[in-house]
Simulated assay, not measured.
Amino acid sequence: MDKNGYPINAHPLSLNESTQLANALDTTEELKRDFLKPLGLLPKNVLYINPDHNGYVIWHTPSQRVDLFFVDNLGIPNGKTSIPPLL
């Protein structure tokens, strides 16, 4: 390939050439870095986004009443319970 990405001297690729091509097409680092970059408005409960390589999100969940379900062998009854606000 030339500097503009056009093929030159079409031929079967050698191992070295195919490795260089695979490295040029590898976007895994970009996918790892850009997963926390929002494209639009954020929900109200999202408080902070760190889009770095090892990024994270902080969000708030308000207090609520939820149904909890347990497997029978635990001996815990199913039912509604209050969940506190979570960060």
Rank of each mutant, 00 (worst) to 15 (best):
W59Y: 14
N4Q: 10
R33I: 03
R33D: 07
N9M: 05
L21N: 04
G40W: 05
L21M: 08
N16T: 12
S82H: 11
N23E: 10
D67K: 12
K44C: 03
H11N: 03
L42C: 13
P12H: 02
T61W: 08
L41C: 09
K44I: 02
L86R: 07
V57W: 10
N4S: 09
V66Y: 07
L13T: 07
I83T: 15
I83C: 06
Q64D: 14
P85C: 01
I8P: 00
A24I: 02
L25D: 03
L31Q: 15
D67W: 12
D26F: 07
P43M: 08
R65W: 09
H60M: 12
K44Q: 08
T27E: 12
D34W: 09
K37T: 13
I58M: 09
I8C: 06
G40N: 14
P62V: 06
A10P: 09
L39W: 07
D52N: 11
Y48F: 09
I76P: 00
P77G: 03
P84H: 06
Y6E: 07
L21Q: 06
Y48M: 05
P12Q: 08
N45W: 01
K37Q: 11
F69W: 11
S63Q: 11
L68S: 10
I49R: 00
N54K: 15
P7L: 04
L74W: 11
Y6P: 00
D2E: 04
G75A: 01
T28N: 14
D52L: 07
I8T: 11
L25V: 07
S82K: 06
S82L: 07
S82C: 03
Y48D: 00
P12T: 04
E17S: 05
L87N: 01
P12C: 00
M1V: 04
N78C: 08
V71M: 13
L86W: 01
P77A: 06
L86A: 05
P77E: 10
P51M: 01
Y56R: 13
D67Q: 15
D72T: 13
N50S: 08
G75I: 01
L21W: 02
E30N: 15
Y48P: 00
D67F: 10
N78G: 04
T81N: 02
P43N: 10
P62Q: 12
S14D: 03
I83V: 15
P84G: 04
N4F: 05
K80Y: 01
E30L: 15
Q20I: 02
D26T: 08
L15M: 08
L36V: 07
H11S: 03
K32T: 13
E30D: 15
N50G: 05
H53R: 14
Y56D: 14
P12D: 05
P43Q: 05
H53A: 11
Y56A: 12
Y56G: 13
F35G: 09
L13N: 08
R65Y: 09
M1L: 06
L74Y: 05
N73I: 13
F69R: 13
N73V: 10
E29R: 14
K80I: 06
P51A: 05
G55H: 01
N23D: 10
P43H: 07
D72P: 04
T27N: 12
A24W: 05
L39N: 10
L41H: 12
D2I: 06
P38V: 08
S14N: 09
G79R: 04
G55E: 04
G55L: 02
D52A: 14
E30K: 15
A10W: 06
G5F: 02
T27F: 11
E17D: 05
